[in-house]
Amino acid sequence: MSITPIIDGQLDEAALDQQLQTLIADVLGLDPAQAAAFDADSGLFGHLPELDSMAVAGLLTEMEDRLGIVIEDDDVDGEMLETYGGLRAFARAKLDPLQPPLDPL
C-alpha cells in the first residue's frame, strides 16, 4: 500500500490519480495496472458488481483516511460515484486549499 504524503493539502494531479486508483484496486482486488487504466468515463457504482453499498462505504472511509478529508452524508450522490472522473472531481474539490483547513490527523 503506497501512501503519498500530503503537504499542506497539496496533492498534484498525478499523485491524486495514483491514490484513488490504488484505493479502488485495494477495495475491488484489481490488478494495479487495470486500475491505473481508469479514465474519467470509467464506470464505478452500478457498473462494477463488487461495488455494493458496503464496499462504497469502505471506499469512502478509506478515502477520508488516505486523503485526510471528511466526507459528509450530503456529499455522497450518484454523480460522484458513477464514474472515476466524478470521484476524482469530488476528491479534488475536497482537497481544494480554498476550503477551511482540516485538523491534522
Binding site: M1, A25, D26, G29, E50, M54, G58
Partner: peptide, 9 residues
C-alpha cells in the same frame, strides 16, 4: 499489501 477487510468480497 492492502488490508483484506477493505475488499468487497
Amino acid at each position: 499489501g492492502p488490508g483484506l477487510w477493505l475488499r468487497a468480497e
